[in-house]
């Protein structure tokens, strides 16, 4: 499988009290487990990102459960009310106990 590459977009700077939008994208085929191999006729096993979690300064601020009904290369965006500067950690869990993560800093102006 192609290399899984997580990408996140966090505003470089924000003011306290602002609600900013955090955008995340991870390259993943999100194989549903419903498709058949065209040559062998066998079902292709499911391989999806099933959970996403966003932490800010160590505390979970947003999470999502993903099912096979989410498109390939899952995009997730969510809001965040800025209270202090800090660091985000984004964690994606895939089938087969694979985990991908990425960090991003948020500065307060």
């Amino acid at each position: 499988m192609a290399k899984v590459k997580p990408r996140v977009k966090v505003p470089k700077k924000a003011s306290v009290g602002d609600v900013v939008t955090i955008k995340t994208l991870i390259s993943h085929k999100m194989e549903t487990g419903l498709r058949k191999d065209k040559e062998t006729g066998e079902l292709i096993p499911r391989d999806i990102i099933s959970a996403f979690e966003a932490k800010f300064n160590g505390a979970t601020v947003f999470s999502m459960n993903l099912h096979a009904g989410i498109s390939a290369n899952p995009f997730v965006s969510f809001p965040m009310k800025v209270t202090e500067a800090g660091e985000f950690e984004f964690i994606w869990n895939a089938d087969g106990e694979k985990t991908y993560s990425k960090k991003a800093k948020l500065k307060v102006a």
């Binding site: 601020v61 947003f62 099912h67 989410i70 498109s71 997730v76 965006s77 965040m80 009310k81 209270t83």
Partner: peptide
């Protein structure tokens, strides 16, 4: 869809507003 579940967004008060997006099949 063949399966009904798309996804679940879990919010916390830290989000400020409850508004999220994604893409579905």
């Amino acid at each position: 869809n063949p399966r009904p579940d798309i996804g679940s967004f879990m919010f916390t008060p830290a989000n400020g507003v409850a508004d999220a997006s994604s893409r579905m099949r």
